[in-house]
């Protein structure tokens, strides 16, 4: 039986900071993993890949069975899965990426410095509903329709549609309100909307996609 919430397996705890590397052919990939338990006693974790621009990537599907540990890092290098065996302060096994497999070795180095993933926040009531606007990129106009709502969990969700030469439904992963600043992020498209609520039915801000930036203005549509 998998003991995802068990915490201690065979007298060993997974908790801590684990530091080591993956031995990819002709290349050593440094890896830092933090395992901790959340308030419900479930295993949570985050990953750092030094030199790869990855800090605090969320661990998913953490499973512990006997001395075997497996987990995934979906937002690192196109998706990583690791499966290994823990023995005291050593954890070693195999990492998979894009169908390739290579051995990894990690050693525990002190307490976990777990970094919780960013989560969507709630938004203010007057921000809910439909917003419409446009921006211009490379000489072409784009029409934007944004629908914002708070879900039962308290976190906001966003439906974003951008119409240029074709209709693009943009999957939004994060909606974060900080004061009057509203941030929307889409990991799949690398699109970010950084908006400031100006009151009286107006958002102004910036559309960003990689090196492309454009000013955008959204006005209240249907509630």
């Amino acid at each position: 039986m998998l003991c995802a919430a068990g915490g201690v397996v065979s007298g060993q705890s997974l908790a801590g900071r684990w530091v080591g590397s993956v031995q990819i052919p002709e290349f050593s990939l440094p890896l830092v993993i933090d395992f901790a338990r959340d308030n419900a006693g479930e295993w949570v974790g985050s990953a750092i890949l030094p030199g790869r621009g990855i800090k605090g990537a969320e661990l998913r599907e953490i499973k512990v069975q006997g001395g075997t540990v497996s987990f995934a890092i979906p937002r690192a290098l196109g998706g990583l899965t690791l499966r290994g065996r823990m023995s005291g302060d050593a954890l070693q096994g195999e990492m998979n990426q894009a169908g390739n497999a290579a051995p990894f070795q990690l050693r525990r180095e002190g307490e976990a410095q777990y970094e919780p993933p960013r989560r969507s926040t709630s938004i203010r009531k007057e921000m809910e509903g439909e917003w419409k606007g446009s921006y211009e990129l490379l000489g072409y106009p784009r029409q934007v329709t944004l629908k914002l709502a708070n879900e039962a969990s308290g976190a906001a969700k966003a439906d974003l549609v951008i119409v240029g030469k074709r209709v693009n439904q943009i999957p939004v992963d994060l909606v974060i309100l900080d004061g009057d600043f509203l941030l929307l992020e889409s990991g799949a498209t690398q699109i970010t909307l950084e908006l400031r609520h100006r009151g009286s039915g107006l958002f102004r801000g910036t559309f960003v996609q990689g090196p492309f930036e454009a000013e955008v203005e959204l006005r209240r549509g249907e509630r």
Binding site: I24, P25, E26, F27, L77, G78, G79, Q97, A98, G99, N100, A102
Partner: peptide, 17 residues
């Protein structure tokens, strides 16, 4: 030899790596 996993296991370009 696929140094640094420049290719996927299907020999496609491994963009994320």
């Amino acid at each position: 030899r696929n140094a640094g996993w420049a290719l996927t296991s299907e020999r496609k370009i491994n963009g994320p790596m």
